[in-house]
């Protein structure tokens, strides 16, 4: 019983890590840079949803849709205005820039919404299902189902849509994509929009259970570990890496001395790097040098 309960909350927490990790991987694959502000974009998404749903009192579904649109636009604009001028700069500078962006977003969120934790109310908050003694909150079910649906949509998008295939083409060979007339820069913007939308989804899903505050984006570090565990380049790997870390954390919290839970993400990362440095799903993408 207890095991099952831990499993469910571990998987649902892991889905959130996985979704943020997905954003890391998407941006990395397409543009070969790492956006360390991914967790903060999730935090911003949660605040925007909180603003629409709680402060403005919009119906929840409308708040969700508007949040996704606003955050996708935010992602695209960030790429266009902040990252694109950095093309050609050393990767290290770009990395520092995204870390700096994270700081700015945290400070900005604190200035706008304050530093005390908020709660996003949803139509499903507080509901539970009782599976013969195993109590599962609706929030957790929504996280898991929502993640599964999003993954399916992404799969179909990358597999069948023209733009999705063009994103793959761009990440496999940028110059060849240019030669084919694919507007590579616009594809970068779209990838950022998509990643921000996914991060915002994670923010909305986790907000009912995690409290919304400017520091909630710090779980981005664990999501980063999840992305590496998954092979940094594999989308299913990112989700799976997130779920592994989420589940191990839950079990570590119960069965290991205090402190282990919080560090377990990094322990998994370390073990992974020692045992199988290429990650669970060896990157399907051999980058050219």
């Amino acid at each position: 019983m207890e095991v099952l309960q831990l499993l469910v909350s571990g998987v649902s927490q892991g889905c959130v890590y996985g979704l943020i990790a997905l954003g890391f991987v998407l941006i990395y694959k397409a543009t070969e840079m790492v956006n360390f502000a991914q967790g903060e974009i999730m935090m911003l998404g949660a605040f925007v949803a909180f603003t629409f749903a709680n402060l403005l009192g919009w119906p929840f579904w409308m708040a969700v849709i508007m949040t996704l649109l606003v955050m996708a636009a935010f992602g695209a604009l960030t790429e266009r205005l902040i990252l694109r001028p950095m093309i050609g700069e050393p990767p290290f500078s770009v990395l520092m820039l995204t870390i700096g962006m994270g700081y700015v977003l945290r400070a900005g969120a604190g200035a706008i919404w304050g530093n005390e934790p908020r709660t996003l109310t949803t139509p499903y908050s507080g509901g539970i299902v009782d599976l013969g003694g195993v109590i599962i909150g609706y929030e957790n079910i929504v996280i898991i189902v929502g993640t599964a649906v999003l993954c399916l949509v992404l799969f179909l998008f990358f597999r069948y849509s023209r733009v999705g295939i063009a994103m793959q083409a761009t990440s496999q060979n940028q110059l060849a994509a240019y030669y084919m007339g694919i507007p590579v820069k616009r594809i970068y913007s779209l990838v950022w929009a998509l990643s921000a939308g996914i991060a915002a989804t994670a923010g909305i899903l986790v907000a009912p259970v995690a409290l919304v505050d400017p520091l909630m984006g710090f779980i981005g570090i664990k999501a980063f570990a999840a992305a590496i565990v998954g092979g940094f380049g594999s989308l299913p790997g990112a989700i799976l890496g997130g779920i592994i870390i989420g589940v191990v954390e839950q079990f570590a919290a119960l069965y290991l001395p205090p402190g282990f839970s919080e560090t377990s993400a990094y322990v998994i990362l370390l073990v992974m790097l020692l045992v199988r440095p290429e990650g669970l799903f060896a990157t399907m993408l051999q980058k050219k040098v």
Partner: peptide, 9 residues
């Protein structure tokens, strides 16, 4: 030069 097809498409 060198074809540069999209290898995984």
């Amino acid at each position: 030069e060198g074809r540069e097809v999209f290898p995984f498409l």
